[in-house]
Amino acid sequence: MISIKDVGKVFPSKHGQLKAVDDVNLEIKEGEIFGVIGYSGAGKSTLIRMLNGLELPTDGSITIAGRVISKIKGSELRKARQEISMIFQHFNLLWSRTVSENIAFPLEIAGVKGPQRKKRVAELVKLVGLEGRENAYPSQLSGGQKQRVGIARALANNPKVLLCDEATSALDPQTTDSILELLVDINKRLGLTIVLITHEMHVIRKICHRVAVMESGKIVELGTVLDVFKHPQQPITKRFVQQVTEPEETKETIEHLLELYPRGKVVQLSFVGESTEQPLITNIIRNFDIIINILQGKISHTQSGSYGTLFIHMDGEANEIQKAVDYIHSQQVGVEVISNG
């Protein structure tokens, strides 16, 4: 669906040339939810703007649904943009128009006739869950409702690709989750290809099938979300994964627990996919002469499986503890010793 080949983007600056995107190569499949994550300045916003022709690459080519977006201009580019919609962090709604009028706007531009336009708007209002709010103005809506209007408007012309530029960054966590669930639902119902950029690993974890990690204009890591959670390779990727698996309060809790349990070992277990379902702790207690205290745990669900972390304290003879650690390894569960008492 989307082919990005050897793409680079250079901007002039006071100190010479700034390479915002540096030799990026990506293939995004039809019907996929693909995430691009990076901190500010990584180049992700520039990359997504090149996907709909808002920016042109300095080098390389971008092809979407058979069209070379990086080469076309004028009416051909306008036609292509009807198939490549975008939603934004700050909604970009027309404040003097109602919900229905905002959604209808791209249909008006496309020359869709009144009755057909009205029918399509009604379909979209229902799809995004805004029944009863059709005549409200943006100032009367919550942040989540505004983004639902933005999504409905983006879907008006039946696009093949939906680009999401930090679409949930301005929303609270609960509203963010509801918008992400809506995007997953739209992806499944319509088979829509979704490309989103974010700096939040929670967003990637919740809805994406694959993810590319960007740093200094380059793709430094690429894979399925579950694989990236399971085996993050780059330091930046490990920091992003820790946003979800080891939030700041976890570190404080562990430091406190280490004071409470000076003997034995504090161990972090990592479960992926089916290993999250097995009765591991029960089996350890039955088979080894050690005492186990469960300290803290969390299971995160991705589109391709579950990923869990569990902190436990193991107390007993050193050789029995080592046997238990070896057993955990044999069960395809990751083990990291946090402390040795």
Score class of each variant (00 low, 15 high):
E336Y: 05
G129W: 01
V272D: 09
L130V: 00
L141F: 06
S339G: 08
S300R: 08
G264P: 02
E246W: 00
A20T: 08
I48T: 03
K71W: 08
G114C: 01
F88H: 06
I292A: 08
I197L: 03
L280D: 11
T224D: 10
Q145P: 06
Q268A: 12
G297Y: 02
N187L: 06
R153N: 01
E215Y: 05
E248A: 13
P106D: 06
A170H: 07
I284R: 14
Q278Y: 13
D177I: 15
E166H: 09
V7P: 02
K230T: 15
L258Y: 08
L93S: 01
V213F: 03
G316A: 11
S75N: 15
Q17F: 12
P159G: 06
K251L: 10
G297S: 08
L18R: 11
S75W: 14
R205I: 03
I64A: 14
K206A: 06
Y327A: 10
L190T: 00
P235D: 09
I312A: 03
E259N: 12
L182C: 06
V184C: 06
Q174N: 15
S139G: 02
D326G: 09
N92H: 15
G217Y: 06
I236C: 03
G308Q: 07
M214Y: 09
R205F: 03
L280Y: 12
T282N: 13
C164G: 04
V266A: 03
L190P: 01
S13P: 08
D227P: 06
V335N: 02
E320P: 05
V112M: 09
A170E: 14
Q17R: 12
